[in-house]
Amino acid sequence: MKKTAIFLLLFLIPFLDPNSYHIEILATAALYALLALGLNIIVGFAGLLHLGYAAFFAIGAYTYALLNLRLGCPFWLGLPLGMGVAGVGGVLLGLPAVRVRGDYLAIVTLGFGEIVRIVVTNLEPWTGGPNGLLGIAHPVLGGFNFGVDSRPYYWLLLVLVGGIAWVCARLRRSRIGLAWAALREDELAARTLGINGTRLKLLALGLGGGIAGLAGAVFAAKQGTITPDSFDFILSVMILAMVILGGLGSVRGVILGAVVLSVLPELLQGFSTYRMLLFGIGMIGLMRLRPQGLLGISQIRRELQRAAS
């Protein structure tokens, strides 16, 4: 009930606030929320520290862009295809990576992320190299072209965030979610209880990758232009920061983290040149005050109380 009300309110914002700049910020925040939800499956649920998540975002974006530019594929077909290709990418890059543990996994994924970006930059005949791809078609829905207006993208992203958040919340409470939690806590004990660690980790990587691909396809359609610069290591790190800041594993938390970290720099706009400086200080300060994230342990406790009552 409460969730529906919040969702409706968010849906109505473009009518209440006609400022297109604000809507653009919100659309960007929603895009980040989608990415943070996807990465949360990998890092928060399954406990795999991934530092190359931007690669799946890139795979989704380039999949739709290439399908559209080469074959004239419409957005609504490109969206699931971008998701699928990025999901398969997540599993394939994960196959070797899940063999290593902990920090080493972080480094392998970082390496894969960089490799994907450099390959995209250097495969010029296909990807347009550093100049990227231009003229990617905007979505068309029932004769209505989304165009360059931020509002339809905001609505689309809002629906996607709502849907994916619902999926994540259900997943977390499911048998699979519990198995992920067990693997995260103590992999050896989990394996001796019959949990196939490799398969479940690959599932998390596939789902997380797929969600990034979904976000990538929307991003490509919204911008109309994509370049490899949009998918660098800094993006991977930012998304991870959103997940950790919001509270690992908490669905509401990571959405909140994404909104805070994407809106905060805009709010600091008044400080013009100092804003990223202040942003850096803010990240340090927030972590010192709440090392467990905004909705970390406290939320878990609340849920336990609710389950108990």
Partner: peptide, 14 residues
Amino acid sequence: VGTYVRTKSGLLEA
């Protein structure tokens, strides 16, 4: 978690 091996529901059921 102990019941994991005796249950079957997967992604779809979730």
